[in-house]
C-alpha cells in the first residue's frame, strides 16, 4: 500500500439516462497490478469500465490517472491519457480486415508492442491477417481485441469478460496471454464472472453488488472466501 495508485477512482456515480447505476464506487490500481471486479450480472462491473473510459458520459466523482483528472476529458482524449479498452462485445469491425483492425487504435504512448511481437504472441492473427475481422472465431476475435490495445502503448488495459462464451482451451490460452502481459509489467483492470480464471492472474479482487463496491480483498484470500463468494455471486 506504499506507492500512489496509477488509477484512482473516488466516489464515482453514474447514470444511464435517468437511472442511477453507480453509487459512490471507489477503486485503486497500482502500476503493474491486475485487479479483478467480481459480481453478478447487472452489478455494475461493465458500467464501471464504461464510466472510467468516458463512454458513459453522465458521471460525478473523481477518476484520476497518475493524478490527472479524466472526468473532464472528451472521450477521444481518455485513450491518449493511457487507457486501452477491450469491450465485452469485443468490437471487431466487419468492414476492416484483421490487420486493419489491429492497426486501428492510434498510438497513445511509447513502449507499446510492435506488430512483430503481437504476431509472435498471437500466431493465429498473423495467419488470418487478410481475413475480414468478423470472420474470425470468437476466441480469435477476443485475441484481436486484446492485441489491438497492446500496440498502442496504453498503460492500463480495461478488459471486460474476455472468457465469456469461449471454449476451455481458448480460456486457457487467454489466461496464458494475461500471465505474459503481467510479466511484462502491464496494469490490468479485469471484469470477470469466472473467478477460477481470474485467480490465476488477479493480485486483488473487488466485489460489486447493485452498483456499489461491497468488498475488497487480496488474491491469496480467494480460497478462504469461497463460501462468501458463492453466496454473493450465486454460483
Amino acid at each position: 500500500m506504499s506507492s500512489a495508485p496509477l488509477l484512482e477512482v473516488r466516489g464515482l456515480n453514474a447514470w444511464y439516462g435517468e437511472s442511477h447505476v453507480l453509487h459512490g464506487v471507489d477503486l485503486d490500481i497500482r502500476e503493474g497490478e491486475t485487479v479483478t471486479l467480481l459480481g453478478r450480472n447487472g452489478a455494475g462491473k461493465t458500467t464501471t469500465l464504461r464510466a472510467i473510459m468516458g463512454i458513459l458520459r453522465r458521471r460525478e466523482g473523481v477518476i484520476r490517472l497518475r493524478g490527472r483528472d479524466l472526468l473532464g476529458l472528451p472521450l477521444h482524449k481518455v485513450a491518449k491519457a493511457g487507457l486501452g479498452y477491450v469491450p465485452e462485445e469485443r468490437g471487431i469491425f466487419a468492414s476492416l480486415n484483421v490487420s486493419e483492425n489491429l492497426m486501428l487504435p492510434p498510438t497513445v504512448a511509447e513502449g507499446g508492442m510492435s506488430v512483430e511481437e503481437i504476431y509472435t504472441l498471437f500466431p493465429n492473427l498473423h495467419e488470418r491477417r487478410s481475413s475480414q475481422g468478423t470472420k474470425l472465431s470468437g476466441g480469435e476475435q477476443q485475441m484481436l481485441a486484446i492485441a489491438r490495445v497492446l500496440r498502442t502503448g496504453a498503460k492500463i488495459i480495461l478488459l471486460d469478460e474476455p472468457t465469456e462464451g469461449l471454449a476451455p482451451v481458448i480460456v486457457q490460452r487467454i489466461g496464458d496471454v494475461l500471465v505474459e502481459l503481467k510479466k511484462r509489467g502491464m496494469t490490468i483492470l479485469l471484469v470477470e464472472q469466472n473467478f477460477r480464471f481470474a485467480r490465476k492472474v488477479a493480485d486483488r479482487f473487488y466485489l460489486m453488488e447493485d452498483g456499489r463496491m461491497v468488498n475488497a480483498f487480496p488474491g491469496h484470500e480467494l480460497d478462504a472466501r469461497m463460501d462468501e463468494l458463492h453466496e454473493v455471486l450465486g454460483v
Binding site: 472521450l75 479498452y85 489491438r148
Partner: peptide, 25 residues
C-alpha cells in the same frame, strides 16, 4: 488508407473508435 479505416470503423461503431482515441467529431 488509415483515414479511410477510421471512417469505415466509425461508420460501424463511432463510440468505440472515439474510445480508442480517434477524434471522431
Amino acid at each position: 488508407t488509415r483515414l479511410g479505416a477510421y471512417l469505415r470503423a466509425a461508420t460501424e461503431n463511432a463510440t468505440l473508435v472515439q474510445a480508442f482515441g480517434v477524434n471522431v467529431p
